[in-house]
Design a protein around this nucleic acid. Structure first.
Lengths: 140, 140
DNA sequence: ATTTGCATTGGAAACATTACAATTTTATAC
DNA sequence: GTATAAAATTGTAATGTTTCCAATGCAAAT
């Protein structure tokens, strides 16, 4: 049952399930490539021909508001979504544009701005540079 | 001479100065509030009535490419610019939307993606939550 | 079966960003 | 200082993305 995880995630986050919502969550969980709204829309249009892009926008925003997905604003040209919500950081290759998940030391989330009265809900860490593949290509 | 710092910055970054470029850099240095393209444009239109928004776009992109300013993609609704390029982190208040500068944790440079062959050029750290002012307002 | 309240749809509108050709400004050479 | 070439700026048009909204569809509750 491929949709089981998707449904579980929605329920755990208090999001009312629907065909579209399950399909979108399922797509995110099955494609950990940080897709954009358009990528999700194009891919799912095949299974759900009536799917509206507005629904994808609404649904992904809803998911993000409920903490069911992460909204990534790393690349200024495109907004990406990540179905993996366990704490991790990202690396964006400035050459190929791909976005990678990276592990960080276990305690990095404890690092906080101190003494200014900020109530921190989310910590975001990302890096930009050149990935391994592109580094090899560029040096050959 | 208010424009001295702006001119110095441009020259240090190898950017050919012009009236518009100096004014835009001067504005960023004098307004550490992380303005958007539009805010810069509206503010500077008063002094330079012929200023084109295209110029503001081109100039800020040029600055960012030369490392003269930081492009901040923290808020998905708006792209902001920061004239302070010394390493620091940011805090965005989800209630009032303001963006604050915060000190980086002392050991931020230790926190790196390790062993995956990534060549890291930039490190970005930011937090989201509720700022002191809004926290007080919300609890009263 | 009817009502009520969300969710979805699709087209239109709003908005942000970029492309480009014309113009102006600045730099360089004479 | 003038002529020439190069670069920067401008304004409009084009593009692309995101949101709005009214109509429709669906599902749970009575």
């Amino acid at each position: 049952m491929i949709n089981k995880d998707a449904l579980d995630t929605l329920q755990k986050c208090g999001i009312h399930p629907s065909i579209q919502r399950i399909a979108i969550m399922d797509y995110l969980l099955g494609h950990p490539t940080h897709p954009t709204v358009d990528e999700v829309y194009v891919a799912l249009s095949k299974e759900i021909p009536t799917l509206s892009k507005t629904t994808v926008y609404n649904t992904l925003r809803l998911f993000a508001e409920h903490g069911a997905v992460l909204m990534l604003t790393i690349d200024e040209k495109k907004l990406c979504f990540d179905g993996v919500v366990t704490p991790h950081a990202h690396f964006m290759c400035k050459h190929c544009g791909r976005l990678f998940d990276v592990m960080l030391p276990a305690d990095w989330e404890q690092i906080r701005p101190s003494g200014q009265g900020y109530r921190v809900d989310e910590t975001h860490i990302y890096y930009k540079g050149i990935c391994k593949d592109c580094d090899i290509k560029l040096n050959s």
